[in-house]
Design a protein around this nucleic acid. Structure first.
Lengths: 197, 197
DNA sequence: CGCCGACTATGACAGTCGTCATAGTAGATT
DNA sequence: AATCTACTATGACGACTGTCATAGTCGGCG
């Protein structure tokens, strides 16, 4: 996806997310971000007086919101919503990207967690918030599909965990096998919790 | 666990793995590794003429072998082996570490994947091999417990995916919730594949 | 002894990092 | 026109990074 024609500030956050998910937080330099965003270098200290930490945190928050919105979009595209269908759609998004764009990038939230969880408190918190931004709509969707209230949150966590892990494995193997496997195995199990009328 | 009294070479690989899983590959410097391992700096170019890349790869390979061996150990400790019991043991290992040592470190293989999958081919391959070293004994164990042959490999991938994802979430949240949730939800499903006599 | 291989010590190098200081432009306001 | 604010430009700084060159130590073996 091309760099959208938003303001320089948004472009920098977006570019940061893209570079982070490809190379990790530490390996992503501020100069790389402005170059990728085709933004003026001088804007860095103007828009992000908090430095790299602020930019990374905003990129992580952006990724969390993006993932949450995607869930709503997947639901809108499904004629007959089901837990397995939702999970399949989430997995398929990654399968499609890996197959068309290659295995160059993973999940930026995972990257931020791996690189900053122990060194940068604010980024760790941003990652946790991003996972929550993602978990919440998934849990709500499951509930709306008939999954018992107290199960919905747990299954949402299971879905996101399995997906994140499969993304890691797929990227290391440069093969979408892990993603298709996880979607195929977990699907029926998820549907089992739906209270059929 | 304290630095074992092996030779300097082994200590450096071990220390590299520890630092990588805490700070990521890029943020882990060679000088940090020798300091952590209390090894002479001059030994770096002697034992690892391939530079950082070689050291990181060996650390990843070490982590893969370690994870594989742990599976065998878990099985030996269980009186009545079951898929859910094995998965619970794998999750509990992380729960225990997080609760006693804090959320300072994640999985070094995940860290290597996030940081190097797109930049360092050999490390990406090492990570894939490490996942395989881990997947294989899990799949074999499932088969020995009565899981159908063609399912065993898939379920092993699902288990490792879910565990890796839960580790990420737990570390970002600084809470073992994701790990207990995943273990609790996935357990019964895994046992469902056992062919009861 | 003399030598040789394994291992260690250490300073230097070229490069990159995030950050900052300073100056400059452009546009709107008064 | 003067001025103020928003934004941009750019060079410099000190602190790193991985790697290398060179020299040194030490034990065993001929």
């Amino acid at each position: 996806m091309a760099v959208s024609e938003r303001g320089p500030r948004e472009r920098m956050v977006f570019s940061a997310a893209q570079l982070i998910r490809r190379d990790g937080v530490t390996a992503t330099g501020m100069r790389d971000v402005v170059a990728h965003a085709r933004a003026p270098r001088g804007s860095l200290q103007h828009y992000f007086p908090g430095g790299k930490e602020q930019l990374v945190n905003e990129a992580v928050e952006w990724a969390g919101r993006y993932a949450g919105k995607r869930v709503a979009r997947f639901l809108g595209e499904m004629s007959e919503p089901s837990p397995s269908g939702l999970f399949a759609a989430m997995a398929r998004q990654w399968i499609d990207e890996f197959q068309t764009a290659g295995f160059t990038g993973g999940c930026p939230v995972a990257a931020a967690t791996v690189d900053c969880a122990d060194s940068t408190e604010s980024t760790r918190a941003a990652a946790a918030a991003a996972f929550d931004c993602w978990n919440r709509p998934v849990a709500r969707a499951l509930r709306d599909m008939g999954v018992p209230e107290q199960r919905a949150g747990s299954l949402a966590t299971l879905m996101i965990s399995a997906l994140e892990g499969a993304i890691l494995i797929a990227r290391s193997e440069q093969d979408v096998r892990a993603l298709t496997t996880v979607a195929g195995e977990l699907g029926p199990f998820l549907d089992g919790w739906v209270s059929r009328v």
